[in-house]
Simulated scan of single mutants.
Amino acid sequence: MVRFDIISCVPELLKSPFEHSILKRAIDKGLTEVKVHNLRDYAVNKHKTVDDYAYGGGAGMVLQIEPIDRCIQALKSERTYDDIIYMSPDGELLTQRLANGLAMKGNMILLCGHYKGVDERVRQHLITREISVGDFVLSGGELAAAIVCDAVIRLIPGVLNDETSALTDSFQDDLIAPPVYSRPADYKGMKVPDVLLSGNDALIDDWRHEQSVQRTKERRPNLL
């Protein structure tokens, strides 16, 4: 079972993603665990402060190392972790291949940055991996952490009603998924391709593969 322990100074941001749809069903089935920990519970003063000004000056606050270390050590005293991941815009880019690899792991900690980020000593001494969801900056790492959880949890056997569904997703074979259609077969003159109505599985598989290759060439040639 894959377990995620998410550390955040604004845990309320992570409530909704895990209370609906596929992620909720996976948790209810006992196929995964997601626990959100309030970093302020590990603050060292009565005001629950977890950030301070940056040494050397400059705009923005920095998450301090002490509450982060206290939280991580408390979690590690309860179980071992395969990875302690910091959600960072300059980390390793999240790809389907990376998600596949994470789905094979067990326990993971996801640390959500905020403000101007975390004390560099956290990244140097407490973190085992850094992951980015794209070349842009968010207000915090919470949404990025939810994206990582979603991408990984849906790959766990038993989470999706049809386990082959994940195998045909975009990027699983370094190709974009082919176009899909549903009823009606003819809507205002816009028709579903005849091959999809043929009932010939081999022809349909060939058509879908050709469409995937063509779409990838047109839209994401870097994947080829």
Rank of each mutant, 00 (worst) to 15 (best):
V50D: 01
P179M: 12
V152I: 08
D162K: 08
I65W: 01
T216L: 10
D194R: 12
K29H: 04
E120K: 13
L196E: 07
V192H: 05
K48M: 07
L13E: 06
H125P: 00
S165H: 08
Y55V: 13
F136H: 11
Y81H: 11
V152K: 01
V2I: 15
L98Y: 03
A99H: 00
P67G: 08
A26S: 11
K76D: 09
N107F: 08
L13R: 05
L23F: 07
M87K: 00
P184K: 06
L175N: 02
G134A: 12
Q172G: 00
N45T: 10
K188N: 14
A26E: 10
C71Q: 02
V195K: 02
D52N: 13
Q211W: 05
I85R: 00
F171A: 11
E78M: 14
A26T: 07
S212F: 01
L126H: 07
I147V: 15
A202P: 00
L94M: 15
Q214F: 10
V159C: 03
K48I: 04
L197A: 12
V133R: 02
P67K: 02
V118N: 07
I85D: 02
L224K: 06
E66C: 01
D205C: 09
L39M: 05
F171V: 09
I153R: 05
A74P: 00
E12S: 15
I72K: 01
P193H: 13
R70A: 10
E19C: 04
M190L: 15
